[in-house]
């Protein structure tokens, strides 16, 4: 039993417990934070598999950006836990069906021995070339068109989300910095000359 195996057990245990807590936590903020913990441990496991780019990208993108915005939304929501529980029994059959499919798929991945996973060639790891570099080579040579199309689709989706939710509120008092900078003394100050009122 070497050190990496102990690390794997540690990450795996924490990840499993955190994942269970995500669905059992009564407070949605706790659930989101447990999801962050689960992501972090998943990244640790990927690091053990020498997939350092994936591991760090998971922390950078999901933990560092997506979950922060997610927490933002969850913290602002006024969630009534009893109302959420009302439809439990009517949704249960559908939920069980989805769960069964997911369990089957995960079993297919984990027990790859029986599904002929070993027939696939082992990924080659060239000495002296980092994981990130080899991934970049692949993305920008063999898979350049799918990669560009995917990024374009994401860009369109992002723009659509912004345009669909953008509401211009009436009576908005936002200031235009250009107007503020270009203000001249004459626009704001009026010098009034008055006759001297005191006569002595």
């Amino acid at each position: 039993m070497d050190f990496t195996y102990i690390l794997f057990l540690l990450f795996g245990t924490i990840m499993t417990i955190a994942s269970i807590c995500v669905i059992t936590a009564r407070n949605p903020v706790y659930a989101a934070l447990f999801l962050v913990l689960a992501f972090f441990n998943a990244s640790g496991i990927w690091m053990l598999l020498h997939a350092e780019f994936l591991a760090i990208a998971l922390v950078l993108v999901y933990v560092g950006a997506v979950m922060v915005l997610f927490l933002f939304v969850v913290m602002m929501l006024d969630i009534n836990i009893d109302r959420l529980r009302q439809g439990f029994w009517s949704y249960l059959p559908l939920g069980l069906a989805v769960a069964a499919i997911m369990v089957f798929e995960m079993a297919a991945v984990v027990s790859g021995k029986y599904f002929g996973l070993e027939a696939m060639p082992q990924p080659e790891t060239a000495a002296g070339i980092s994981n990130t570099k080899s991934l970049a080579w692949l993305l920008f040579t063999d898979y350049v068109y799918p990669f560009e199309i995917a990024s374009f689709v994401l860009l369109v989706a992002m723009l659509a989300a912004v345009v669909l939710t953008l509401r211009h509120r009436k009576g908005n008092k936002a200031l235009d910095p250009k107007v503020q900078i270009e203000v001249k003394r004459e626009d704001r100050v009026r010098v009034v000359t008055m006759a001297n009122e005191r006569h002595d």
């Binding site: 903020v29 934070l33 962050v36 350092e52 780019f53 760090i56 990208a57 922390v59 950078l60 933990v63 560092g64 950006a65 922060v68 927490l71 933002f72 913290m75 980092s130 994981n131 990130t132 570099k133």
Partner: peptide, 25 residues
């Protein structure tokens, strides 16, 4: 001395925000 040092730095500095958001809530 890891190859993905810059990525690691960006990932770690992006975690600092959690302390602030957790403390605030």
């Amino acid at each position: 001395n890891i190859d993905a040092g810059m990525l690691y730095i960006m990932a770690m500095t992006s975690l600092g925000v959690y302390g602030v958001i957790i403390a605030g809530w």
